[in-house]
Simulated assay, not measured.
Amino acid sequence: MTEAVQEQILCPVCGGPVKVDQQDKVNRCEYCSSPVLGPSQSRNCVNHPDILAKEVCHVCGDLVCEDCIQKRVGEYGGKLLTIVNCDKKSCVAESEWAKPLNEEYQKLANMEWADRIDNVILRITGLGAIIMMIFELIFFLWIIFYQFLTPWSIPQISLDFLGPVIMIPLTILLFCILGNLLSAILLQSALQVYVHDRQLGAGVTLLVILILEVAHLLFRGLFFNLLTLPNPLFLPVMIGAFLFGTILVFIGSLMAIFIGNKKRVQLKEAREKLNLSLKEGIEDLI
């Protein structure tokens, strides 16, 4: 006796297969958790059988019309999500973490236009920051290699105001730790360009850290006298990689500043149009 094959339909949001556990009720996509209507489910509101439903309650999965909808907005992963629930007490309680939606302000402050460019900015700055981190790691390993495994080395340096002689390995370690710290801050800032309300600040931070990173590299080059390295290819290759990462971060930071400022102006105009204060605007949006 053959087992019955469970019916599957495709999720309209992510395109993943959805197992139809309930023919006449909402099924959940196991990939994105989106509600998917059952094949034989009524498309009318559960409270008003003669009215076509407009939304699906994100908590219980019931179909509801405009009169039964409660919309809220919450922040998740740096983006704003609209939460829909019906008027049942249990569903309202489950959605209380999100704030009631000011639909007029939401329309004026809608930033879906920036989703695509935000992804581009994130990829550009993220790739550049990762290249910078890899550069710092390789730079440290190569300097240690040249210092201890080749005839080339850096002489000891005496800094009178510090008293005793500073041993070069410690100096190398400190400079490289600082370089890796800057690159880590760079990567962390690059990840913030995807968040609407942090994008402008993240772009400015990226520029500042980038300037410090470039200055730090130039100082290390002069301090360690890297032009005397025995391998003629090491310095050009490292500088090329550093420049590539720098250009990516620089372009991404400028884009983040431009788009972030555009969003700031959009929110400001939305608040002014609705006569909202800054605090009220933020509370209505987030």
Rank of each mutant, 00 (worst) to 15 (best):
Y76A: 15
I124G: 03
L80R: 12
P100T: 05
V73H: 03
R72D: 01
I69R: 13
I69V: 15
L63C: 07
V92L: 12
D115C: 06
V64F: 09
C65V: 00
L81P: 04
P100S: 05
K89V: 11
G74T: 05
C86S: 02
E75P: 01
V73W: 00
I134C: 12
A114T: 14
T82G: 04
A98Q: 03
E94Q: 13
G74W: 05
E66G: 09
S90R: 13
M111F: 12
Q70I: 11
E112K: 15
M132V: 05
C68L: 02
C68I: 01
E75A: 07
G74I: 00
Q70R: 14
N119A: 12
A98F: 05
G128L: 02
L81S: 09
I69L: 15
E75Q: 08
G74N: 03
F135I: 01
L127A: 13
E96K: 14
N119D: 13
G61A: 01
G77Q: 08
C57A: 05
D87G: 08
G77K: 07
L122G: 11
V56Y: 05
E94A: 15
W113D: 12
N85K: 04
M111Q: 15
E94V: 04
P100G: 06
A109Y: 01
K99Y: 12
L108P: 00
A53L: 00
L80H: 09
F135G: 01
S90Y: 12
D87S: 13
V56N: 05
S90N: 10
K88N: 11
K88C: 09
Q106L: 08
E75F: 07
S95F: 03
W97N: 08
L63Y: 08
I69Y: 11
A114G: 06
A98Y: 01
I131P: 02
M133T: 11
R123V: 14
E66A: 13
A129I: 04
H58K: 09
G61V: 01
I83G: 01
E112Y: 13
N102E: 06
C86H: 02
N85M: 03
T125V: 08
R123I: 14
E104F: 09
